[in-house]
Amino acid sequence: MTERSTIFAGFGGQGILFAGTVLARAAMAEGREVLWIPSYGPEMRGGTASCTVIVAEEAIGSPVVDQADAVVALNPPSLAKFEPVVAAGGLLVINRSLIEAEVRRNDVEAVELPCTALAREAGDDRLVSVVALGALLARRPLVSLASAGAAIEAIVSAKRPQILEADLAALRAGYEAAAVETVPA
């Protein structure tokens, strides 16, 4: 693996920055180089929030990417904005609970899951981004599932230990759902 970029995008409150932080911490724990950068612009107020996480074996240059190796889209505007950004052969994780639009690209791998519904089953709608992170890792092992779980534990335990179990359940739910789903030909 050289350098892999992932964009997480959704509404503010869907845990976009959190999911990116989990990936970044897990990558750091695995000894990789990583860079996490949020879109901290005015679009965060009510619109689409996003963050980019670059995981690499060597020092990372640009914090901005021309194309993303993976995009996690949790709401309709995110898919519209970032679908064109996925590299050919890249991965698109789509939250079917909120997104009705079809995927237009035929040169990317799409994982379409009811992330919000899966999050609710795990314990809380707001864990939607953690479900999506699990799905991402099932298809793109940027970090191990164990590392992601440990990163969640490290972050959540300090502030809200009561939601740790639900978080880990959401991560597993996304991972398992994406692992069993057949890849479209």
Binding site: T21, V34, L35, W36, I37, P38, Y40, I60, P63
Partner: peptide, 10 residues
Amino acid sequence: DGALGQAMEP
């Protein structure tokens, strides 16, 4: 710049 201020790195 804002990117450096807002980004996280190990």
